[in-house]
Design a protein around this nucleic acid. Structure first.
Lengths: 349, 349
DNA sequence: AAATATTTTCAAAACGATTTAATTTGACAT
DNA sequence: ATGTCAAATTAAATCGTTTTGAAAATATTT
């Protein structure tokens, strides 16, 4: 292992100067800096992280906690974010340590992880409204960033898409096509993005002068089976006149909807328009639906680099408010949406 | 932060003695040890990992690298192992650092991770035959354990199930029920467990005196779609007389097989026996198939604790050969297997 | 050329744990 | 009492980096 002293000996310099030269301190002369950098490069110097951490009091590690619920969603979306974050953090010389929350108390895992390791910060994902983890970490003064947003007036760094707009724009597109009975298959209740989409759906329906009946908005863990079940029930008229358009909160739900449509011998978009929000996960590709799925698209992995940078900057003393990022999903019109059928021009009673 | 010195001051002892007392060295008196432990507990002492690491030269971290292939399998099985390993390693005071391999060269990610961090070891998963990562880490003298086994005469610590037996026992069960035409839907080619299962299938078929035709053994990434496609082709007789039994390398494939069976209006197990190997992942539950699926079962997560312990022990100087674990999957006969139908008593020509 | 700023460099302390070598304490035999 | 041996404890060095306060080298002003 090459140390600062080794480099210093080679050049007749003290470790202190070498350290400053490599860390870009201003008080070292350009000539010396270049010599030091050249030798460090040549000798293959790598700073000993443990020594750095000991003296700076930072661990260079941030934590992320998996909630091992039976909820399928975690597996797919969490993995995507986890992998992306890991790569993005590595680029900022930060390690991602993974822990598992197998309990009921969401705070417990954070407590344990903080006392066991010395972590510089956390990445939170899938926040619920007024998330207790946010409250805890704020109270403790631990840096954290959130993938999503647990309250509208968040004062912490986050990366999220405008979920109100995600739902509202979908409704607007369909309304412009003449649809009056539009159903919304949403995600599971507790998550904050689900509530935002619900608000967006209801808001846009109201703005378009369209009533909404009970059962036109549903909450389920995103699975093919749930999409199938809900669509079948809707299309069978079990909740009033069937809708002429169904918006899905995820492409997984849309897969189920498509199967229900086939089972009932209907045509998309002739009899029913279908659209979805697309996280662009590798498993379920909107473009390979037949017909290709109209979506609001916002790849989950887009969040990783901004979030990683925000967290490292925050730990370095950055201003939380300047590290917030609210993004719009892209509306991609494909072949699963079309004009409302003749029988679809009446709104729900 | 509470340090050794704080505890020493409280008791009128030197940090050295406190360190020894807490680390269970024999030369400290019982009375002192108890006093120290009591005070450490009371003050909530936690050793500073950075300081420990600096002086011991160990980082207390091990690495695991995700290969981000378009292969779906990674997402599901990797996540399961990752989460389990993380918990099991935490119990041994070791952190799991995640990295991503987005390149073509499997070694590159390990090189980068080694030079960037100081890692004490690695966990390898999903080995291919004569895996280059194994060769690399062996040559470098870096401790590692493998989930799986890339060669039969492995001299490193591993945890694997007997994949030859997994396939062979399935064949034996079906052969005992009178089946003569048994197909095997295997996983994707490069993985070593796939090769072992292939050998087990062919070996057991030969031992039972049953011929195997081209197309009765297939290789696919485990997905519902692949199972459907292969089963449909087999049952349509496109590869000779249809089999009376199909063994699947995963429950995902079995889901596809079941769909193909339904589409063709066949009955399980009346017309066709179906069985699978069950990793016991949360997504696809063999028991909720209808009929409930006969399987060889070996929960993936069972590997985590043994692997974590093996790696920590290996790093601590343990003998690799004594840290190997070869396990048998459990054969669980449910309702998807039955006697061969009348037309199934003839083997393939 | 002397006095004063300004750069640039260095020696030493710090971080908190482990470990080596040395010292104290206590028990026991002489 | 004295000496011997073992047991228990400690002082000090160590790991490799950062950082403080001081010193040396160089540049600028008088």
């Amino acid at each position: 292992m090459i140390t600062l002293k080794d480099i210093g000996d080679e050049l007749g310099l003290s470790p202190a100067t070498v350290s400053r030269a490599l860390n870009g301190f201003p008080e070292v002369s350009l000539k010396t800096r270049e010599r030091v950098q050249e030798v460090a490069e040549r000798m293959g110097y790598r700073a000993n992280r443990s020594a750095q951490r000991l003296v700076t009091g930072r661990s260079g590690m941030v934590g992320m906690i998996v909630k091992t619920s039976p909820d399928l969603r975690a597996d797919q979306t969490f993995m995507e974010v986890l992998v992306g974050m890991s790569a993005a953090l590595a680029a900022r010389d930060t390690d991602l340590v993974l822990a598992v929350d197998q309990g009921h108390d969401p705070i417990e895992a954070y407590r344990r992880m903080l006392s066991r390791d010395m972590l510089d910060g956390f990445i939170l994902n899938a926040p619920v409204m007024d998330d207790p983890r946010v409250n805890f970490l704020k109270a403790e003064g631990i840096p954290f960033v959130v993938h999503g947003r647990d309250r509208l007036d968040a004062d912490y760094p986050f990366y999220t898409i405008d979920n109100y707009a995600v739902a509202a724009e979908s409704v607007q597109l369909l309304a412009a096509l003449g649809h009056k009975r539009i159903a919304y298959l949403n995600g599971a209740e507790p998550y904050s993005h689900v509530a935002r989409r619900r608000a967006g759906y209801l808001g846009a329906m109201a703005a378009a002068g369209l009533p909404v009946i009970d059962g036109a908005h549903t909450n389920d863990a995103p699975s093919e089976a749930a999409g199938y079940r809900q669509a079948l029930s809707l299309l069978a008229g079990q909740r009033g006149t069937p809708p002429t358009a169904i918006i899905c909160s995820s492409t997984l739900l849309a897969e189920g909807v498509m199967r229900a449509v086939r089972d009932r011998g209907l045509l998309v978009p002739g009899d029913l328009s279908v659209m979805a929000h697309d996280d662009d996960l590798p498993l379920s590709r909107a473009i390979s639906f037949s017909p290709a799925l109209t979506v609001t698209r916002a790849p989950l992995r887009d969040a990783c680099v901004p979030l990683a940078n925000a967290l490292v900057d925050l730990i370095g003393g950055g201003n939380p408010l300047s590290l917030q990022s609210l993004n719009r999903a892209e509306l991609i019109v494909r072949d699963s949406t079309g004009p409302a059928p003749a029988n679809g021009t009446d709104p729900w009673p």
